[in-house]
Amino acid sequence: MDNTLFKQYQQLLKREKRYVRVYQLIILLLFFGGWELLSRLEWIDRLIFSSPTHVWHTFIEKVSDGSLTLHVSVTLMETVIGFLAGTLLGTLIAIVLWWSPLLSKVLDPYLVILNAMPKVALGPILIVALGPGYFSIIAMGALISIIITTIVVYTAFKGVDPNYSKVLQTFGATRWQIFREVILPASFPTIISTLKVNVGLSWVGVIVGEFLVASKGLGYLIIYGFQVFNFNLVLMSLLIIAFFATIMYQVVELVEKTIIKNNG
């Protein structure tokens, strides 16, 4: 009896999962189908909104002349490096602040100001200071996530239950041992969740950086397409960005699952 009920329950779960997938697929088809249809019926301006088939043709064309691979790899490289640099430096600053309570008190108002300031506004200064190249774009991708990472991770360090540290103190642990054995592992879930936010932020930084200065990359393609009024190119670049941003996010989620497994 129990066994049959359990089987029924499993089937119910399976059916629900299938329904979810079907509806997700329907939304995707409706979006692209509707887009194509509205464009063909000329209910929307074809010049501005393009259509899936036009975007596809542009895609094939850019892939076959080899230029797309270059643009995509440049942007991806910049984003991944910017993302890693932002997260690592942010965490490093958080560690320094945790280490020195006095320093963290002194720096507190500056962190608030830096966090409140829109980092992309620093773009022109970065470009002048670091030169118009990969370096200033990567700096942009990193800069946009550094301060928020510092603040979130530092707050996580301070939020660790002091009784865990007390346990180690009774064994005569040094400050570094307490950090390594308690503070850092207890903060892993928070650090991982900032990674997820930083993935999105780094894309913003890099794309804006490319808007400003680049001659390669997806951000450059968007600006170029806008300037020559080729919106097929703009929309294709957008779809590619969405695709790779999603993949990066999924990778971070995978990392999260492996690290957090035993942290519960």
């Binding site: 009784n163 865990y164 346990v167 180690l168 054995e181 592992p185």
Partner: peptide, 21 residues
């Protein structure tokens, strides 16, 4: 409360004091 470290196994928890020392 026990304040066992959730990310360590029981064995690692028991020996953490030895590790520190």
């Amino acid at each position: 409360q026990d304040y066992l470290f959730p990310w360590k196994t029981i064995e690692e928890n028991v020996t953490i004091g030895l590790k520190i020392m």
